[in-house]
Simulated assay, not measured.
Amino acid sequence: MGAVAALYRYPVKSMLGETLSAVAVAETGFLGDRTHAVLDETGAVGSAKHPRKWGALLRCRSRRDDLGMVQVVLPDGTALPVADPELDVLLSKLLGRPVFLSAVAPERGRLERAVPEYEGGVPDAVRASASVDATGASITTGSVAPGTFFDFGQVHLVTTSALARMREVYPAGDFDPRRFRPNLVVDTDTGPGFPEDAWPGARLRVGEALFRVVVPTPRCVVPTLGHDELPVDPGIMRAVARDHRVPVFDLGRLSCLGVYLDVLEPGTVRVGDAITLREAA
């Protein structure tokens, strides 16, 4: 049904990540993915989902060296290992308030999300409970997955078919997969569309690893932000909201692109590996 077109890992949550040719998949996801995050003194976990507060993190890049050590490259090109105390100082200066980088997820860490204006960006019940914070943004507050820095799923997959469909819907937009921060980009051969809509519950063999498809990925404001050379484009998510709102658990019909996966069998995944789908029984 297709093959792995690209692999990405993001050692520090909400920073730019790294492109891989191969990756070891552990029971908890891609080895080295989102092992660190930037926190502030209120217990908030740094996430570009709240751009006014944390958007500057997307101007930084995180990467792992051959020894597995995580390094952060700041917007001015300064590169420091995560263990260097100077990094906290520079990140605090970048964000305009005291922050620190951590490899330990706080027990009650808060994750703040800006509420988009378009329908389908958040469940209606959540929108109704939003509040305006000190930045002037309307936000909702949730939590990261217990014991991790993941929002929800262990692995995030995006298909080339979905990206092709969105290019048809919004030709002016640049639907580079990096906007959607996937771990796996799958080169599907079905043409434009959303074949992954039929996958939840199915098992997906990718290289040596086996995954279970959990649920479509609800999209936030992050794909509209600037990523490397990709410019800010609010039209990206407005297009997704118009074209692809699908049921997500009991939350209603949300703007989705991609699917979340759980790991059933660890193994190595490489660019070019074949992908096979075993539909849910």
Score class of each variant (00 low, 15 high):
L20F: 08
G29F: 00
H50A: 07
V132S: 09
L31Y: 03
T141C: 10
V248L: 13
E168V: 12
E27I: 15
R63A: 14
H156D: 07
R9S: 07
V25Y: 00
L20A: 01
R63L: 15
L251G: 04
G46I: 03
D273W: 01
P218T: 05
V155F: 03
A125F: 03
T42G: 08
L261V: 07
A130L: 06
V214S: 04
V70F: 04
V70T: 12
I236R: 02
P81L: 09
V186A: 13
G153T: 01
R63P: 04
G109C: 10
T188S: 04
F152Y: 09
F152R: 13
T159A: 12
L94V: 09
P182A: 09
L31T: 07
K49R: 13
P234F: 04
D66L: 06
A44M: 10
D228Q: 09
S62P: 12
P98M: 02
T159P: 06
P192R: 07
L277C: 04
R9V: 06
R253Y: 07
A105S: 15
G207S: 01
D273L: 07
A3G: 13
V214P: 07
T140F: 01
V206G: 00
L67F: 15
Y170W: 09
L16P: 06
D197A: 05
H36M: 07
S21P: 00
C60F: 01
L39I: 13
A198F: 01
C220D: 01
F194Y: 09
D40S: 12
V89A: 10
F30I: 08
L31R: 11
R165A: 15
W199P: 05
P218Q: 10
V271K: 04
V169S: 06
G77F: 02
M69I: 13
F30M: 11
E107S: 07
K49E: 00
A128I: 06
R9I: 14
A280Y: 01
G252E: 10
L16I: 11
E107Y: 09
L225C: 10
Q71L: 13
A162V: 08
S143H: 10
D228V: 11
E107Q: 15
A105K: 01
D88M: 14
F194H: 15
E279P: 08
V246P: 02
R97S: 12
A24C: 14
T190M: 03
S138V: 08
V246R: 03
V144H: 00
A26F: 07
A172N: 05
G142T: 14
F152C: 14
K93N: 10
R167D: 04
L67Q: 14
L163M: 14
V271P: 03
P51V: 03
